[in-house]
């Protein structure tokens, strides 16, 4: 498929909300997926995979905690949307510190949040997650190694320099199957049509 980044962002927001996240986190997820797509990474697939894992989970089970120096979920794998938002919220409080992360699904979804941290700090950040690394200056990213769907641990540090960043692109090309998954989640935000709602509410 060939879709606009606006379509990606709009669908990602609805899908994240449809999977039970609060609107605020859905907005962050949408911007994150758009950022990945604009940097040539398939953010749609990462989001679809994440939403499948956390669909229907209680909010507190999605939210990360810092335990023994590791950011992690209360049980199981951490959600990269909630964790990314938590790391970014602390950007101004943790400048220069290394952040370590416990088991996490689709760690690539943390990268857009780390890019924002790079903008806050005004310097590049490096992200290590198992098989791959990403360096970002906030606008561009450079990926090293094959992006994996899971990492047992990950690390974010204020370090690195972009050598051959990904080119920015203005379109996304998600798999139709992934797009369908996101649409199915988004669908949960739509109220079933009734004759009354047609009559009363339609514009």
């Amino acid at each position: 498929m060939n879709v606009s980044l606006n379509e990606v962002e709009a669908l990602a927001k609805k899908a994240t909300r449809g999977a039970g996240y609060p609107w605020g986190l859905a907005e962050d997820a949408a911007k994150a997926v758009r950022f990945l797509c604009s940097n040539g990474v398939d953010g749609c697939a990462a989001l679809a995979g994440t939403l499948r894992v956390f669909d229907g989970a209680q909010l507190h089970n999605r939210m990360p905690r810092q335990v023994d120096g590791f950011w992690q979920a209360e049980t199981g794998d951490a959600c990269p949307i909630a964790l990314g938002a938590a790391l970014l919220d602390r950007a101004g409080l943790t400048t220069g510190q290394v952040q370590t992360v416990g088991p996490i699904v689709h760690p690539i979804l943390l990268v857009p949040f780390i890019a924002q941290i790079a903008l806050v700090n005004g310097c590049a950040m490096r992200f290590h997650a198992g098989s791959f690394q990403v360096v970002t200056d906030g606008k561009f990213i450079e990926t090293l190694g094959a992006i994996s769907e899971h990492a047992d641990t990950a690390r974010v540090e204020q370090e690195g320099k972009l050598k051959a960043p990904n080119s920015h692109v203005s379109r996304a090309t998600p798999d139709a199957a992934v797009w369908d998954v996101l649409n199915a989640f988004a669908h949960k935000t739509y109220a079933p049509a009734t004759e009354e709602s047609r009559r009363k509410g339609a514009g």
């Binding site: 669908h187 935000t189 739509y190 109220a191 079933p192 049509a193 009734t194 009354e196 709602s197 047609r198 009363k200 509410g201 339609a202 514009g203």
Partner: peptide, 22 residues
């Protein structure tokens, strides 16, 4: 809320229609 039918915003009556959760 957003209607399933045309994916367009609508304004409904919270206490008369099953829309609050959307």
């Amino acid at each position: 809320y957003t209607s399933e039918e045309k994916l367009e915003p609508r304004l409904g009556e919270r206490f008369e229609e099953p829309i609050a959760e959307y």
